[in-house]
Design a binder for these strands. Sequence first.
DNA 1: TCTCAATTGAAAAAAGTTATTTTTTATCCT
DNA 2: AGGATAAAAAATAACTTTTTTCAATTGAGA
Lengths: 156, 156
Amino acid sequence: MKIFHWGVIIMMTKEETEKLKQDLKERGYKLTPQRRAILNVIIDNEGKHLSPEEIYDQVKMECPEIGLATVYRTVQLLEKMGILYKMNFDDGVSRYELVHSTEDHQHHHLICLKCGAIEEVEDDLLEVLEDRISKKYDFSIENHDVKFYGYCKRCK
Amino acid sequence: MKIFHWGVIIMMTKEETEKLKQDLKERGYKLTPQRRAILNVIIDNEGKHLSPEEIYDQVKMECPEIGLATVYRTVQLLEKMGILYKMNFDDGVSRYELVHSTEDHQHHHLICLKCGAIEEVEDDLLEVLEDRISKKYDFSIENHDVKFYGYCKRCK
DNA sequence: TCTCAATTGAAAAAAGTTATTTTTTATCCT
DNA sequence: AGGATAAAAAATAACTTTTTTCAATTGAGA
Ligand SMILES: [Mn+2]
Ligand SMILES: [Mn+2]
Ligand SMILES: [Zn+2]
Ligand SMILES: [Zn+2]
């Protein structure tokens, strides 16, 4: 297992790999080295929000012959399987992160207008607003996408 | 003034046109027929969220020789001036709407996962959440982008 | 009217993403 | 283990949206 100066690379355990293989099999998909490498990169970068290109750059270290199209195909597949969540921070690329199994709604993000840092918000706290919207607009809410733009502690 | 079956076209008044001309002049820009036509289309479609291509298609009725690049340039300019707000509904294009002068924060949107209808939410109701975030994360909030995904009254 | 910077339309380029084609491979079955 | 087969891969082309380039035009002011 490789060690980088900023910490240890986390990888899927044997059990997680088996679980993934099983999930894929149930839908008629295969577990390829490319797919494993891509998911490993995403797990290694938990907390970041990587674009396909960024994933590609990292995956090439493990798997230098991989193609960018394979990364695109894989993240789409993993999103369809509910393993990844696709996000848009209006910077011209799509970004992906692991779905946190503990949360039933997507968490919120704080985006610094100066340095671009993205911070995650633990609290949901939208129950009141969502209840009111459900009733007032007769709209059943399945999920949300909440971003706050402003200045982080370092920039304000 | 043209009348369509779904209503009357709203246009900038003389005063609004003068105000815009003044605003542009202050920044060294000109009020061209193309810019006026583009803004008129956006005003005519208040409540919708038009893409540059959609604006282009409509503007061509008034101004058939206009180029798509001019539409892109103009919406960018109007956004920079605080007249338009650029949004992203993850459908592959950017979309624009008039900034509502009455609201200090962008309003929320309800997006139907079945029919794609987009409805606007009047209530902000994020004060509690924003206060808490400001304190807990030491982050000063300037604006937000809040979307709720679910099923509208017709689709659920 | 003359000047000049701003703006335009057309075309090309860039950037991100998806589709196509051929080759390779993971999985299942004997 | 070996072979069949459907899925996935790489490579490449195509596509979509947006930006840039550039020569020609225009608007505002002197
Ligand atoms: Mn996140
Ligand atoms: Mn709106
Ligand atoms: Zn910052
Ligand atoms: Zn609907």
